[in-house]
Amino acid sequence: MFFAIIAIGILTASCDDDDTVSKTANLTLNLSGLEALGNDFVYEGWIIVNGAPISTGTFTSVTFPQSFSVDADNLANATKFVLSIEPAVDSDPAPADTKILAGDFSGDTANVSSNGIVADFSTSSGKYILATPTNGSDNDELSGVWFLDLSSGTPAVGLDLPVLPNGWKYEGWSVINGTPVSSGTFTDVDDFDDNATTTLFKGDLGDGPAFPGEDYLQNAPSGLTFPTNLRGATIVISVEPNPDNSPAPFTLKPLAHVVPSDAADHVTIAMGDGPVASLSGEVMR
């Protein structure tokens, strides 16, 4: 009798232990367009459960599909999936501002996109001129790019872009002989970019007009010579994580344009659609 009671006690304890063991289920990501972030940053997935974010794990590989083991109850109750860019060494358990994909679950699938969480660039447009206002008139005028509209004779806003959420900035680029050279980051299309007073490329006669842009006049990167001629170069507007994961352009590039071979200085030139205006994917539970 004594041993029977012991056995029943052990069986009861085992059942109790089984009840407290959490069950897991797989969350599978099949995403397109992401690029490797380098050593200092990782991607992190989040499910939103009762309005609160719960991490589904971090990853660095951009080869998909990838699967993650997640608490089954949380996954079943999740209403949304969000992907963020996080520091590789991260003391903050909450998602960073730099959220790149998001989508609501419908049944067992969430179609995720950058359009709702970063911005929708489907109606974006841009204009620019070639000019070098920071070294005086009629000097190397084909060696600078400024994102403004001069068609009326008076400088006006040249970029029509949505306001970005926290965690993102715009950056202008000139791809010269295959080398992308930044013209500076910015959040306002009708003001100086962030490096207007500190850039090493501009001339010595001021900061130029109060619009994003750059004069490529001195201190050229290795392999290039300044002043240059931007005819044939590709002018790009990218969307960059903030803080930025790389000195190179990020994968989101909503606007781009190859400078015509006969482009004249101080003449307004229209940009076209860039190579990557949105990212997307599918998340399955």
Rank of each mutant, 00 (worst) to 15 (best):
A76I: 01
S91I: 11
N39V: 07
T134R: 04
A78Y: 00
P260A: 06
E44I: 05
N229Y: 00
W168F: 14
Q66E: 13
G213D: 06
P93T: 06
D191Y: 01
T24F: 12
D265S: 14
F105R: 06
D108T: 14
S278T: 13
L159R: 07
T197W: 01
F41G: 12
L205H: 04
D262K: 00
S32G: 15
L279C: 08
P87M: 09
L34C: 10
D244L: 01
Y216V: 02
T132G: 10
T63P: 05
T251Q: 09
P209I: 12
P241G: 04
A131G: 11
F226G: 10
Y128A: 08
A102G: 13
D193H: 09
V163Y: 01
L164Y: 05
V62R: 05
A264E: 13
V157I: 14
I117L: 02
D160I: 11
R285K: 15
L205E: 15
T20E: 15
F147C: 07
N195K: 02
A94M: 10
P95Q: 08
S280R: 00
L101D: 11
N242Y: 12
A94I: 01
S69F: 01
A36F: 03
S106V: 14
L31E: 10
S114A: 07
I47L: 09
A72Q: 12
K169Y: 05
G57Y: 06
P212M: 03
D92A: 07
L101H: 04
L101W: 02
S61H: 06
V283T: 08
T187A: 15
I237G: 10
S84R: 03
F201E: 11
L159S: 13
D160Y: 03
V175Q: 06
V267F: 01
T154N: 12
A4I: 11
L161Y: 05
D215C: 11
A220S: 09
S137D: 15
K80I: 03
A88V: 13
S113M: 04
A233S: 15
G107D: 05
G206K: 02
C15Y: 09
D215G: 15
G274K: 01
N195W: 07
Y128F: 15
G103Q: 06
L142E: 08
N166L: 11
D120C: 07
C15P: 00
F186G: 12
L252S: 06
L11S: 12
G223W: 00
D265F: 08
F186R: 06
I269D: 03
C15D: 09
